Amino acid sequence: MAFPLKITLVTALLLLAACRSDPIQFHTLTPVQSGDHSRAITGGIKIEAITVPPQVDRPQIVIREGNSGLAILETQWWGANLVDELRNALEIQLVNTGTQGRQSVRIDIQRFDSVPGQYALMDVKWRLRSGTQADSPKIICRSTLQTPSGASIDDLVLAQQNNVKRLAAMISQAASRPGGTCPSAS
Rank of each mutant, 00 (worst) to 15 (best):
A185W: 07
G131D: 01
R127M: 10
Q110P: 02
A175E: 01
S152F: 03
G43C: 13
T97R: 15
H27C: 13
G44W: 08
S152I: 03
V157N: 11
W126L: 04
L158D: 11
L9V: 12
A2C: 06
W77K: 14
A159I: 04
P178H: 01
R58W: 06
A12E: 11
A49W: 08
R111F: 04
Q146P: 04
D155R: 10
I92K: 08
G43M: 11
V62R: 00
L16Y: 12
R20T: 14
L29N: 07
D155V: 07
G131H: 01
L13P: 05
R129V: 00
L121G: 06
T11E: 12
G101L: 07
D36G: 07
Q33H: 15
T144F: 06
S34C: 07
P54D: 15
I50L: 05
S136V: 03
D135V: 02
L14K: 00
K6I: 13
Q133T: 09
S21F: 02
A185G: 05
A168H: 10
S68G: 06
G180W: 05
R166F: 03
V105K: 00
V32P: 08
E91P: 05
C19L: 15
L9S: 04
T147G: 01
Q161H: 03
T144C: 09
Y119G: 09
R166I: 02
D22I: 06
V62K: 00
P53V: 00
V56Q: 05
R177Q: 14
V164A: 04
P116V: 06
A12I: 12
L156S: 04
L121Y: 00
T147V: 13
Q25C: 10
D36F: 08
P183I: 04
L82F: 01
T28G: 12
I140L: 12
R64D: 07
K138F: 04
V95R: 14
S136Y: 02
T30R: 04
D154V: 11
Q33V: 14
C182Y: 08
R177E: 14
P148L: 04
Q133S: 13
R64F: 05
S21C: 01
A175I: 07
T132S: 08
S186L: 11
Q133L: 08
C141L: 03
A185S: 15
N96V: 10
T51W: 08
A18W: 05
N67C: 04
G79A: 15
T30S: 14
I171K: 09
S38R: 15
I47W: 04
S186Y: 08
P59N: 14
